[in-house]
Simulated assay, not measured.
Amino acid sequence: MVQYCRKCGAEPEDDAEFCDSCGFKLDNNPIENKQNSLPQKTTENKPVESKNEFITKLPLILAIIAIVVGVGEGLGTPILMGWNDIIASMVIAVIGGLIGIFLMEKMNEPVIAAAEFIITGALIYMFIARFGEISAILFIVAAILALYFKGMRNLNKKLLAIPILTIVLVFALLISGGALYQANAENSITVGNISQNITDNGYGSYTGYITGDIRVDTNFDYLCVNVDYYDSEGKIIDSNIGWNDNYPESGNTYKISSWYYKESPPSKAKITVVDSATDNTPLYTENITIVTSSGV
């Protein structure tokens, strides 16, 4: 079969691969070669598929980042917030985040996973407030993206128990942990050697002091001894701090000293020991009847 060069029209040898005149590569089956040279759709779609895969993985990526940030924020929270709250926030960030990821990736339940992420973020903020803002926001954003990219599937109502149980478990641990801490703290404080010396100066004023000792047998972040003075009608007429300290050392005994200077005599005093400036539940309470002596 005679072939001709499609570029210059020359007539090369039958078995030649290239044209002797112009060097053009001869093609015995241009239709088949043209079909083979067409771009494959699968090759062109690979970058698009990779991009879509990355987008759908955003909730997972954000959830992992939120866990890491949650732990970092806990470690960076001032100790004055309390070790109990700091540790609780870090544990919740890890466990709550991992449960959400499991629900989203393994159980394919984005709605329930989103609920778990939101609860996790809210609990972190509850424990360490503004020190956990970033991780809380990341968990909430991860929840929104999980709903958006993973779709709204039919809810498995049984699995809804997981975020609900997370809340119940956290609050159960808080209540039991708080009760154990309170009992241990109360047994770790001993107040003794209380003495009083309130004197009528005879010039319309009463002065004096209440002293004592407080022994600490465990580690506290903060301890404070408050002394409230009451009149005969049971009204508080004076209050002051008899002693306070950050990180008092276990096994040490500290001196309590509360001074009184008022125009009216106190009838009694109440000594309370607290471990927080905002805690209304004292670790120790003792009432003392005041006997005023004359200094004239």
Rank of each mutant, 00 (worst) to 15 (best):
I92G: 00
G9H: 07
D200T: 00
R130K: 13
N28F: 14
I167C: 14
N154I: 13
K57L: 14
S232M: 01
V273G: 00
A143Q: 02
V91Y: 01
R6T: 13
E249A: 10
N184D: 13
Y148K: 13
V225P: 03
F24Y: 13
D27F: 10
K25S: 08
S205V: 07
S239I: 07
D27H: 13
D238F: 06
F139E: 05
E49G: 14
G234A: 02
A179Q: 11
I236H: 03
A269D: 04
S21E: 14
Q40H: 10
I164R: 07
E13Y: 09
D221W: 04
L80H: 08
S37W: 08
S267V: 05
T43P: 00
N193L: 01
D27Y: 10
A66R: 02
C8Q: 09
V68C: 06
L283C: 04
L169R: 04
A122H: 05
G151K: 07
L173I: 10
V69P: 01
S232H: 06
G74H: 01
T42I: 14
D85I: 05
N52W: 12
K51S: 13
D221I: 10
E109L: 11
L123C: 01
C8P: 09
K51G: 11
L123I: 11
A269S: 09
L145E: 02
D279Q: 10
S37H: 09
Y222E: 03
I144W: 05
M107L: 15
I101E: 03
T278Q: 12
M1P: 09
F24D: 09
